[in-house]
């Protein structure tokens, strides 16, 4: 399947782009992270500490073990600092 992967805040800066289209067979978010981290050093560095990374599947907060079948948009970002 093909998904749009989005990055925000320091994840966007470390990876060097706000979004990319990824062809993947990943079953879960964690599998997708492994695939992304294997792409190059920038992805690997940005995704090295998953305790500092939050994820949304199709704009809904999700956890790393969530399944991604059918997802169109998966976003990675730091803990939110609204308000």
């Amino acid at each position: 399947m093909v998904v749009d992967v989005l990055y925000f805040a320091w994840l966007r800066e470390r990876i060097g782009q706000p979004r990319e289209r990824i062809e993947t067979e990943a079953a879960t978010v964690r599998d997708l992270v492994d695939q992304l981290a294997a792409m190059d050093d920038w992805h690997a560095a940005a995704l090295s500490d998953l305790s500092a990374v939050r994820v949304a599947i199709d704009q809904e907060l999700a956890d790393l073990d969530a399944r991604i079948a059918g997802a169109r948009e998966i976003a990675f970002f730091p803990p939110m600092t609204g308000g």
């Binding site: 925000f8 805040a9 970002f77 730091p78 939110m80 600092t81 609204g82 308000g83």
Partner: peptide, 11 residues
């Protein structure tokens, strides 16, 4: 909820 669950990031 807004502090921790709304997708904003401050620099």
């Amino acid at each position: 909820w807004l502090k921790s669950r709304a997708p904003f990031w401050k620099r």
